[in-house]
Amino acid sequence: MQNNKDIIIELNKELSSLTDLTSIDQLEVKYLGRKGLINKLLQKIKDVPVNKKKAYGQKINQLKNEVKRIIKIKKLELTNNKTDEFFDATLPGKPYPRGSLHLITSTVEKISKTFQRIGFIRMSYPEVEWEYFSFDSLNMPPDHPARDDFETLFIDVPPAPKLGKMILSPHTSSGQVREMWRCGRPPIRMVSIAKCYRPNWDTTHTPMFHQFESLCIDKNITITNLKASINYFVKEYFGEDYQARLRPFHFQFTEPSFEVDITCSICKGKGTIGHQKCKVCKSGWLELAGAGMVHHNVLIEGKINPEIYNGWAFAFGLERLIMIKIGLNNMRLLYDGDIRFLEQF
């Protein structure tokens, strides 16, 4: 019987001259086939003395594995180097799922992180609210237009003593007095991002929307503090080349009150595109948010002494922010539940 070493040398010699897979297959049959060399060697085991049978078997097995390994390597060499089969590296890879998050989710995350860095904590308050927290505590008298059927959604239950009717909170400011009560004593640095509801439904209004609210109460809080916080947010969220400006405005629960405008993202603040007026903005500015110094009546409702403490509040709609940022012109798409829209984000 040939020893293993000789067989391997012979195999390598035969292999070296082969260049195609078909002849390698034939060689494989010669060695490993049913009537191949290795099987023939195995059949001879019956002639081996009993005490050597085990060693013989092991030896043949080693040989078999070695032959398999060598042929496999040779085959791999051929498939990789030779052009029998075309390997197209430009084909797409194996697909993995991607999924999507709602635009509101990613916006909420970004805003909360931005404010977290300047020491604000995110809080959460009821969406189904009492009139007291949404209006009375915010210096909005019972005859205020925002409180009527055309501006606020009401729940069909009898009103509660002192707290008034049950409503869907029309703004996140309902959390202001709740936060003052929770903290007891300033400093307060709160942000709240939540669903709000109003009875409007068109391309720029949905009956449910999201607002962001931030509230800062402490000793010696000034308009310059508010201005800096808004400026910080706008630069963080939109980018360094965006400007914010404050304009006089009117809200019941702040005094003074401001409207916050930012540089229009379409015309880059110029107000014109070519020789055409920008259709999106008002002379280069887009209205973004409302803000102001917390009204002293609100502090009093919050059981905070307005002679010692004061503060600022700042709020905006998330949908508007998103619409500005991605150039979306129909707000309803966010809540219409069309997968063709949602899966893009």
């Binding site: 300047i118 020491g119 904590i121 995110r122 809080m123 400093p187 307060i188 640095r189 800062c216 402490d218 809080i221 000034t222 308009i223 310059t224 503090n225 201005k227 800096a228 916080s229 400026n231 910080y232 400006r245 404050l246 304009r247 006089p248 005094e255 003074p256 009150s257 401001f258 110094m293 009204h295 002293h296």
Partner: peptide, 29 residues
């Protein structure tokens, strides 16, 4: 505060500097 608003707006919000309030540590529940 209504009078403060009149003075501040006519003086010009645009002329006011940006000064961030002091950062304080607060525990989120």
């Amino acid at each position: 505060e209504d009078l403060v608003e009149e003075v501040a707006r006519i003086y010009g919000y645009n002329k006011l500097p940006n000064q961030l309030q002091p950062i304080v540590y607060l525990r989120q529940p």
